[in-house]
Nucleic acid binder design. Structure first.
Length: 559
DNA sequence: CATTCATAAT
């Protein structure tokens, strides 16, 4: 063999290994690596990088360790690229300890090494640890007066970390800090920012991000476009979601699914069905998530026959097998429409381990239709599967209360307390003048509390005159009747609405977000409030949007 | 000759 031939060969092999990784075919990379070993081709450091990468892509920790061993035995140069691949691989495979071991062995770490560590921490939900690393990088940058030690990837990773653990506001604050440091956001960053806005129902921040997206030229990125559609839908503006959607030059299945999900959330069932047709006509193949959104849209609009048809079509025409989420949608669809027995049969026919989600959907339906007998049976199932499920107790208690059996209703609450199962505290958020405020029940802490109380008092009078009668069955605190009335006035959504009313000009629509479902009494109250103050009020609860206007809610009872 | 870190829908 002529000198140089081997080098040329290894180059070709390495290129092929890299090509497979880039194409998203890590299995092929591994196969090719096997073949190289069979043909006794000695690898170099350029060989190991794509192979380690492939292990990361496959989440194959054991293979990764073996390759790491081989790397050491091969005597190849252990440079920063190889080290970074290893850190990334261990972090992605969930072994942070191994990632740290490699990190500490590396003679010098660069920004990529740090980023891989931060992302590893974010991935396993260790947001705090990720932030510590991020701040540490800031220190190092100053102490050594090197090149900026953090780049746009670092910032984006931290933004994602915040969004992931429900700290959207901190993500938005950090986004400002990032720009002040002169780091330019890119498509990845904007996706994280839009996600934060969506999670907060921060429409104004979302619009602001949209403007920056246009300025930066990321507008045509399909990830950014899909995130914009999702953000606008989740912030209550389907009008803007459609505007973005219609302007997009290329739309993939995720884009379509995002708009269908928006239709579902807003109760636009017919729109969802119509655009699902259009999606198929345009040759975009729906997937399982697309059908979750479509079925949920049918459910939230009470389109039973259409939903049944979609479900059958999914299985027979698209060969997509029903997952837990699809069953849950179908139980919800049938249950809401009053087909309780069919819904229960559906759960019984599920080919999976029992799960609370479809049972909860059925229990909700039992509450809507006042079926005490089935409700008891279903609640029992739920509490066997998940004894900590406070919503199971609350719904059953509501079912008894609605049936007029206050004794049993109180018993259930009593049982819940005895077993130490805590209710999830209800919380409401509202964006007023670009600032998000949060409230819990009976909140006294807001700086404008005096004005809020006065506003509630005023509303109470107006609502009374309009014919509103409080429904005390849905206040399940262990309190006397007069006190109940007091509590009803102070559910967190009412506090938030009062704040919104006193801080915005007459006629301004209000947008609020809840972490739970709206209670029956609040739902009725908000209808009255929308009428007596002449405001559109949008409430996003855990399931969907309620658009209240002139005494009517868009959900038409389907929630 | 080349290689490493990041993104959307339930």
């Amino acid at each position: 063999m002529a000198p140089g031939t081997v080098q040329l060969n290894i180059f070709a092999w390495n290129q092929k290994l890299t090509k497979y990784v880039k194409e998203g075919q890590p299995e092929k990379t591994m196969q090719l690596f096997q073949q190289m070993q069979q043909e006794e081709i000695s690898p170099n450091e350029f060989t190991f990088v794509p192979v380690i990468n492939a292990c990361a892509g496959l989440g194959a920790l054991e293979d990764g360790r073996l390759v790491h061993e081989q790397l050491i035995q091969s005597g190849c140069k252990f440079d920063v690229f190889v080290g970074n691949s290893l850190v990334d691989m261990y972090a992605k495979c969930g072994s942070i300890e191994d990632a740290w071991r490699v990190f500490n062995k590396m003679p010098c770490q660069d920004v990529v090494t740090w980023n891989a560590m931060i992302l590893g921490q974010v991935k396993c939900g260790q947001g705090q640890k990720a932030l510590e690393l991020f701040r540490e990088m800031e220190q190092e940058g100053r102490v050594f007066d090197k090149m900026p030690s953090r780049n746009v990837v670092t910032w984006t990773a931290i933004l994602l970390g915040y969004v992931k653990c429900g700290q959207g506001q901190k993500a938005l604050d950090l986004f400002q800090e990032m720009k002040q440091e002169g780091v330019h956001p890119n498509a990845f960053t904007f996706v994280a920012v839009l996600n934060a806005c969506a999670s907060l129902v921060a429409l104004e921040d979302g619009r602001c991000a949209h403007e920056q997206i246009i300025q930066s030229g990321c507008e045509s990125d399909v990830f950014v476009g899909s995130s914009l559609v999702d953000m606008y839908a989740k912030c209550g503006s389907m009008e803007d979601a459609w505007k973005v959607f219609n302007k997009m030059r290329s739309r993939d299945v995720v884009t379509w699914t995002a708009i269908l999900g928006g239709c579902a959330m807003h109760g636009h069932g017919k729109d969802a069905l119509q655009h699902f047709e259009r999606m198929c006509e345009e040759g975009v193949e729906p997937n399982d998530v697309t059908f979750v959104c479509l079925l949920s849209a049918c459910s939230h609009a009470g389109l039973v026959d259409e939903g049944m048809h979609c479900y059958t079509s999914m299985i027979t025409d698209y060969m997509i097998s029903a997952k837990l989420e699809h069953y849950t949608c179908m139980v919800d669809l049938l249950g809401r429409a009053g087909h309780l027995q069919e819904a229960e049969n559906m759960i019984m026919a599920m080919p999976f381990e029992p799960h609370v989600a479809p049972w909860m959907a059925l229990l909700g339906a039992c509450r809507i239709h006042g079926n005490v007998e089935m409700g008891e049976r279903v609640a029992k199932q739920i509490l066997e599967l998940d004894p900590e499920n406070s919503a199971g107790y609350v719904l059953l208690s509501n079912i008894y209360a609605a049936a007029g059996n206050m004794h049993l209703s109180k018993n259930v609450e009593q049982q819940r307390k005895e077993r130490g199962v805590k209710k999830h505290p209800g919380r409401t958020w509202i964006e007023v003048n670009n600032e998000v405020h949060t409230f819990v029940v009976d909140d006294q802490d807001h700086p404008q509390m005096i004005e809020i109380r006065a506003e509630l008092q005023r509303l109470s009078g107006l609502m009374h005159d309009a014919g509103y009668v409080p429904d005390t069955n849905f206040v399940l605190h262990d309190v006397e009747e007069e006190e109940k009335l007091f509590h009803l006035c102070h559910h967190s959504e009412k506090l938030a609405i009062a704040l919104g009313l006193i801080n915005t000009p007459p006629g301004t629509p209000l947008r609020i977000r809840k972490n739970l479902r709206v209670c029956e009494d609040c739902h009725t109250s908000v209808k009255f409030i929308s009428k007596v103050v002449g405001r559109a009020i949008m409430v996003r609860d855990v399931n969907r949007f309620h658009h209240f206007e002139d005494g009517i809610c868009s959900c038409m009872g389907y929630w």
